[in-house]
């Protein structure tokens, strides 16, 4: 079942299925190592609908809620 990345709980892993949204966001996320097929671990989720902190390829990235909502993932 595909859900958006911001719906994944803390300390859970997910696999990227696709990135909805335009060219800009796809490219930016790709630069940080987030492509379809990559495994992401959600490490933290900030309060008040703040950003989420993920770990991907051994690197930490903060994604705003709006951005995370565009990353479609499969929970592992």
């Amino acid at each position: 079942m595909t859900i958006t990345l911001d719906a994944i709980g803390e300390n859970k892993k997910a696999k990227v299925v696709s990135i909805s949204g335009g060219w800009g966001i796809r490219q930016r996320l790709g630069c940080l190592g987030i492509h379809p097929g990559d495994i992401i671990m959600v490490k933290r989720s900030a309060i008040m609908r703040g950003p989420i902190l993920i770990s991907v390829h051994g690197n930490q990235v903060a994604l705003g809620r709006g951005v995370a909502g565009r990353v479609m993932v499969e929970a592992e």
């Binding site: 800009g24 930016r28 902190l53 930490q60 990235v61 903060a62 994604l63 709006g66």
Partner: peptide, 12 residues
């Protein structure tokens, strides 16, 4: 205008 949202690397 909607701000594009944050994508920021958090370095070690």
């Amino acid at each position: 205008e909607v701000t594009p949202g944050m994508i920021l690397e958090i370095p070690a």
